[in-house]
Nucleic acid binder design. Structure first.
Lengths: 144, 144
DNA sequence: CTTTATTCGGATGTTTTTATCCGATTTACT
DNA sequence: AGTAAATCGGATAAAAACATCCGAATAAAG
């Protein structure tokens, strides 16, 4: 469904959000350890999120990654996916046609539109804040 | 959503089905021309579909690919996707966790289950026969 | 029996995705 | 000023996906 980069990105952002709620800044090593992702690759993804203003990255001692509480509430999975994978998920034909649309549809056009609308709404309606709720209570996990 | 191989596979199988309904066997060259796919790569995919019993492949002059009318009605997109991409679409966690399940879920487990169930049902309930209906009447297309 | 039209199967090449390495830069603390 | 703790950014490597090539095998038709 998503690229590996996107999976790591969502998990990393969720972890950063959770720790930011507790007022803690986190380092790359802590993140990749806690979400069980390849460290150097995760660094690249965090750079993309930082450039897109989704997380705050600070160099130097006592640096690391963090998010403001308003960003935690406002940022949705949709924004993270878009920052990493672009609009691949929303745009494009399910069967790979370049000019598939309502005028000249592929045989599964309508059915794909329906499923992708579901996915899009889910991503747009899920905030990082919501993602952290289950983690704090031990109901959900970010690794294994 | 799907791999390129899977996209070509669905389009190719749909084209074969449509022509088989008219009693025509089709060659690799005709298929890749009519669905606008890379010829040699399409051959590999058709081999997979043939090995999985989804299409009939016959060597030699007057050979080519075809499907029985019962297979056209019975074969679903789900079977084609499974033959090419395996269970990647149905199985596995949306965030890439190896042991994500109802006991130990990722933060979006339930939401992903919902969306994937939609997708699975759509693929299981769409037959190749249904795919060909719009093509014959010029309502849907397999290329461009 | 030869030619022609086909798919099959293995080897190979290309592109994209995933992942690593390491020096440069920045910042805080002593 | 010096050192340690961080991210940044560019180069490189490895793996997977995508794609091509070509000889072998098969079958029909002349």
């Amino acid at each position: 469904m998503f690229s590996k980069a996107c999976e790591y990105g969502i998990r990393a952002a969720t972890y950063i959000a959770m720790q930011s709620i507790d007022g803690r800044r986190v380092s790359l090593n802590e993140i990749s350890g806690e979400i069980d992702s390849p460290t150097a690759f995760t660094a690249k993804i965090l750079q993309q999120l930082s450039r897109n203003g989704i997380i705050d990255a600070t160099k130097g001692a006592n640096g690391g990654y963090g998010m403001s509480s308003t960003d935690i509430k406002k940022t949705t999975l949709s924004q993270i996916v878009f920052a990493i994978d672009g609009d691949n998920i929303y745009a494009g034909c399910g069967l790979g046609l370049k000019e598939c649309n309502a005028e000249k549809p592929c045989p599964v056009h309508d059915k794909f539109v329906f499923i992708r609308d579901n996915l899009r709404q889910m991503l747009e309606n899920t905030s990082l804040h919501e993602m952290t709720l289950g983690l704090a209570t031990g109901l959900t996990y970010l690794k294994r």
